[in-house]
């Protein structure tokens, strides 16, 4: 019964998201006053948080270690390559000792929560908080203690990346066709979310977030990873004319 309810909820979410006006979701924002100079500003890449798996007919996520390892390698390589092409200066990311690694993993865990708050309470116009509505306001942080993270003293910004893909199982695809054909009810074929953020290593402030809810590219394939990373790094500040806010 719970599986049926999950499927129903996903169907409703699919309908709801399909019904939203396109302008209801902002996808990226840069904090005012951020200056990133290609070739000078030092950016440290935090180990990307990547999850790949399948989605059962009932909508449950089942992680796939092999797909995740493949995607991690492909995305990691692409991030370095594409940032290099943009002229971004990369800082070393030291492994650090056990205590340092524990600090880094805490911030890796906090970043997706902050990103979700931005997406739900600032980017989604229908649910934007009154204090986040004021012109020019983009005020989120991971806290100034991020300066304790290994390598923070030798870099200006940290780049956080999150990518989660759940590919529909054969059963789910069959159910999707059946539901669409018989009842006109949409079941999402899978989940493909990703976001990237840049954090000031002196203040902890989130200075850029890119969170396009419609991520493309099959991260299990080289070509797909190129597309995915291109989307994650779209509007990267300082490398191209980046508007203060872009709406989709």
């Amino acid at each position: 019964m719970i599986r049926i309810l999950v499927a129903a909820a996903i169907a409703v979410m699919g309908l709801a998201s399909a019904a939203l006006p396109a302008a209801a979701q902002e996808v990226a924002r840069v904090r005012d006053g951020v200056k990133i100079v290609p070739g000078q500003t030092r950016i440290m890449i935090i180990q990307p948080n990547i999850k790949v798996g399948s989605m059962s007919t009932g909508g449950l996520f089942e992680p796939n270690a092999e797909w995740t390892a493949t995607a991690r390698g492909l995305i990691d390589g692409q991030v370095r390559q594409q940032l290099g092409t943009m002229g971004v200066k990369l800082a070393e990311t030291p492994a650090g000792d056990e205590a340092g690694a524990a600090i880094a993993s805490q911030y890796r865990a906090l970043f997706p929560v902050v990103a979700k708050a931005v997406m739900e309470f600032q980017f989604f116009l229908g649910n934007r908080l009154p204090t986040k509505k004021r012109p020019g306001v983009f005020d989120y942080t991971l806290g100034k203690d991020i300066a304790r993270m290994p390598g923070a003293a030798d870099a200006d910004y940290a780049l956080f990346l999150f990518s989660e893909d759940a590919y529909g199982s054969a059963g789910r695809k069959a159910a999707q066709l059946l539901m669409a054909g018989l009842f006109g009810v949409a079941i999402a074929p899978g989940v493909h979310v990703g976001y990237a953020g840049l954090v000031d290593l002196k203040t902890g402030d989130l200075v850029w977030l890119n969170a396009d809810p419609q991520m493309g590219g099959d991260v299990r394939e080289a070509d797909g990873a190129v597309k995915r990373v291109g989307q994650l790094l779209a509007n990267f500040p300082g490398t191209a004319p980046a508007p203060a806010a872009t709406a989709k």
């Binding site: 049926i4 499927a7 129903a8 909820a9 409703v12 059946l178």
Partner: peptide
């Protein structure tokens, strides 16, 4: 199951 699901969704 799918019928129930569709009804619930609607």
């Amino acid at each position: 199951s799918l019928l129930i699901s569709a009804t619930l969704a609607a």
